[in-house]
């Protein structure tokens, strides 16, 4: 179900805005405390060149910087959420999130190329309700997998989510089954799905498509889990050890294939797409 294609919209990006010549602001790395011009960070894929700390990134910016220039063709860009359960304040929350993220939903989907090789891609948006999964989020990802299955395309998915969208109640929960169905059909056709887990990936997204990839990558230090740390602390009645539920911990426990620094991600994606390519 593809509604329409829209022109590439440039996101209103906080770091980029701040880096405009008028402000030329200095930013402090929250990890190593190094001070540096914002522009330096933006040019370096928003990774601190001193300690490797990965700053947050917009969904669109991620595609723009990791895939071939201008290769992203977005689909279903205009699809927006409805307040299906008449949940109080949800309409307001949606419109605030649109303003904050400059996106219509918590995920953008379409096709793009890496070194000329075409794939289907979805990218979840931190600044839209922390990538929470509503019916439109699920619809866009499901349709993307269906499109990829129909056209024999691999899927690269950037997963980032606080979990289910409470304001859509059980309909949000149903998205986990809906997307899983589309992932399964794509899988059954022998097509490649590369899942990249970002900070944070939790809840219903972890318990569905984020962990259904043929290969699962993660960015360094990304928080990845089913239950959030606070919920676990309440269950255990104790604080959690340092590094619990971080990407490195998940790799040690056997749930992540590889941790990839964002600066190496484009090359890794390119190699994996090439290895799994069905083209001559």
């Amino acid at each position: 179900m593809f509604l329409n294609k829209t022109m590439f919209l440039r996101p209103k990006n906080k770091l980029e805005d701040d880096a405009s010549p008028q402000t030329d602001r200095i930013i402090t790395c929250p990890s190593c405390r190094k001070k540096m011009p914002v522009k330096e960070i933006s040019d370096a894929l928003k990774v601190c060149d001193n300690c490797g700390y990965h700053f947050e990134m917009h969904a669109r910016e991620r595609i723009e910087k990791l895939f071939d220039a201008d290769s992203f063709e977005e689909i279903m860009a205009d699809l927006t959420s409805k307040n299906i359960l008449s949940f109080p304040d949800y309409d307001k929350k949606l419109s605030e999130s649109m303003t904050r993220s400059n996106e219509n939903e918590s995920v953008i989907v379409g096709t793009a190329r890496v070194n000329g090789r075409k794939c289907a891609v979805f990218s979840m948006e931190y600044y839209f309700m922390m990538g929470s999964m509503g019916a439109v989020t699920g619809e866009k990802i499901t349709s993307l997998f269906e499109h990829a299955t129909e056209h024999d395309l691999p899927v690269v998915g950037f997963c980032l989510s606080g979990g289910a969208r409470i304001q859509e109640g059980v309909i949000s929960l149903m998205q986990m089954a809906k997307v899983s169905g589309a992932v399964e059909k794509h899988d059954r056709k022998g097509l490649f799905y590369l899942s990249v887990l970002l900070n944070p990936t939790t809840g219903g997204v972890t318990a569905s498509f984020a962990t259904q990839g043929d290969i699962i990558l993660a960015e360094p230090n990304a928080l990845i889990g089913f239950a959030g740390p606070r919920v676990i602390e309440q269950t255990m009645r104790r604080s959690l050890p340092k590094g619990f539920q971080r990407a490195e911990f998940l790799k040690d426990k056997g749930f992540v294939d590889k941790i990839v620094d964002r600066r190496d991600l484009r090359d890794t994606i390119s190699s994996l797409l090439s290895i799994h390519s069905k083209e001559e």
Binding site: G225, F226, A227, T235, K253
Partner: peptide, 12 residues
Amino acid sequence: SGMEAEERGQGY
């Protein structure tokens, strides 16, 4: 939602 459930991959 305890620690051991996370360690053994509840989400997966």
